[in-house]
Write a protein that binds this DNA or RNA. Structure first.
Lengths: 345, 345
DNA sequence: TTGTACGCGTTATCAG
DNA sequence: CTGATAACGCGTACAA
């Protein structure tokens, strides 16, 4: 090889190797098209390949004042709901040559604040808040301020869930989806419902509970029992166990997400109940990994990967002073084996 | 508020606000401890809070020559195997105040090369290659060179899977785990096995197949049928369907991961087979989301989150010229409902 | 079209 | 212990 500087190879090294100036080498990589002669450009690219040059990201960020990094903040990356959204974001990011910095709050909403601040410092081009908003005015207000600071610094913020902040938002129509689900279940003949409701502070959980209530009321059915529980498998399991020890005469249980529903299924089995004969059960989300549980779960399909892609699209298509945009995502009710047509008694 | 520069607030702004020099302000944030007077430090911190200052990451990276970013490269973030590893990495990264840049190769191994190169340019402190190595000497050689370049630039590379490169490695003992699984299944009375084997180029899949073969041979059983298939739900489903149409007299089917096993379960159900009465089935990984499938799946538990944490630990504990280290991860065989003690006929 | 020179925000070195 | 100042690598006005 040639004599090179000791550390990482820089664009100056490439320029030297190619026999051009630093500026020309720079332009050969990304310069406003057609400003560098073809043969020089080729020489530069060749030299870069030969030296295995990798552009210094931080230096580019300094010079340009912005990066190609997008932050993605989720509640828990091991939750398949967020993993699917992340997959959509990753796919779209690859197309746009964007890097994704992942933040996982471990379901502590206040950690979102820290992440947004750090990502502002990193000069991230954007941040995507993928998780449900929370019912906490104080927190919401601080988050609004932090997001405003982020946007003042030149970045964009996109939220996936509820429109609670003056930001670009992928609005998930949880309530109407849940309402449609409840009405379909009512039309199948179910009458006595219980809801495994998730934590009430989570707006996603709350919206779904309210949607189910709406749908049952619209069908002229009595108000359902609602139990709180964590938004996880164990939350569903424990809530169902409690339900089974205290309540009688239930037709149908609706969990506010599939993960909880599967936990509930396990609790039913532990109690010797047969699904769907003894009890009908439905979930929400249509998590891909859970499509093969038996009996197949009635649910509301959300296009999770597409939601991630849509969020990234909002990131890349935004214009500076433009008012915030919204994209509405509707769920699709899928009636499957876990809620068969109920035989009239 | 005070008059401030139009753009984002800089450390100079903080210094002005606090009435100290830029250098002092810098030291007050992270300077080698105890070099700045207490009252000045407090003034700086106060000023920073007041101005909502967020340190400019790229600028710090320039000055320091390195970042606090770790790259995590997976095959597919929506695969629960990788999502769980990612969760472990995220948890450990939070403790170390490290940021994580996520790369998802969409199961195209050559994309790992691009990611490593880009992350080198980003001056990432480290990169974690979380996925299986592949049987492709050409690719392996190029990856070795790219990782060497990364380390020459001052970063560390950690691999989770097989020790195929001269790098810190979290070695997953797939073969011995699979062997132990096969022996346990043999001791339960199963005799005629088939393997849903995944893509042969994936060393993880191949090691598991070989381990099962080893175990069966050690138990004095005939060699199993092995079918290839994608390392996904559909791969398991399709392979099982093919198996059911062409093979007879099988006792027990072992899929090389849980996701494939669940796809296989669905194929069995489609064919009218009852598990485990008509056929026993086992998987590998013990994916949390799939622990409630019915019948409960016999599998080999891998501590996925801990594997992610271990990888990050290797990142943070490494010394410069030190030879590469390895951490061995053993699986634990879990016999569950899907492979009951076989009644002798 | 190409080259020169400055600035980006921070850290680290070197004087005070 | 504090302050002035030189890097760090790149993009880009500006000059040639």
């Amino acid at each position: 090889m040639n004599a090179m500087s000791p550390g990482p190879v820089t664009l100056q090294d490439v320029a030297n190797e190619a026999g051009v100036s630093l500026a020309t080498a720079s332009r050969a990589f990304n310069g406003s098209t057609r400003k560098v002669r073809q043969d020089l450009k080729e020489r530069v690219l060749l030299a870069a390949a030969k030296l295995n040059y990798a552009a210094n990201g931080p230096a580019q960020a300094m010079a340009r004042g912005r990066t190609n990094v997008v932050g993605l903040i989720v509640h828990d990356i091991s939750d398949p709901y967020f993993a699917a959204i992340a997959a959509g974001v990753m796919r779209a990011a690859e197309d746009q040559h964007l890097l994704v910095t992942l933040g996982s709050t471990m379901r502590r909403p206040e950690r979102e604040l820290d992440y947004v601040q750090v990502l502002r410092g990193q000069r991230s081009r954007a941040v995507i808040l993928a998780g449900s908003r929370v019912d906490d005015p104080e927190l919401l207000s601080r988050l609004r301020e932090e997001c405003a600071a982020f946007e003042r610094a030149g970045g964009r913020v996109v939220v996936i869930s509820q429109q609670k902040l003056p930001l670009d938002t992928v609005v998930v129509e949880n309530r109407s989806g849940a309402r449609a689900l409840a009405q379909r279940l009512a039309s199948l003949g179910y009458q006595r419902f219980a809801i495994l409701g998730g934590p009430t502070r989570l707006l996603t959980a709350r919206d779904r509970v309210q949607g189910i209530r709406d749908g049952l009321a619209a069908a002229g059915l009595p108000a359902p029992v609602v139990l709180e529980g964590a938004f996880t498998r164990d939350g569903g399991h424990d809530a169902m166990r409690e339900l089974l020890t205290s309540r009688e005469g239930l037709d149908c249980v609706v969990a506010v997400n599939d993960v909880m529903a599967v936990g509930a299924m396990a609790a039913c089995r532990d109690a010797g109940l047969h699904l769907p004969e003894d009890l009908a059960l439905a979930g929400f989300d249509d998590i891909a990994t859970l499509r093969d549980v038996h009996p197949k779960l009635t649910t509301v399909r959300l296009p999770l990967e597409r939601m991630g892609e849509t969020a990234l699209e909002l990131v890349t298509t935004g214009t500076e002073g433009e008012p915030h945009r919204t994209r509405r995502i509707r769920g699709e009710v899928l009636i499957r084996e876990s809620t068969p047509l109920r035989p009239t008694r």
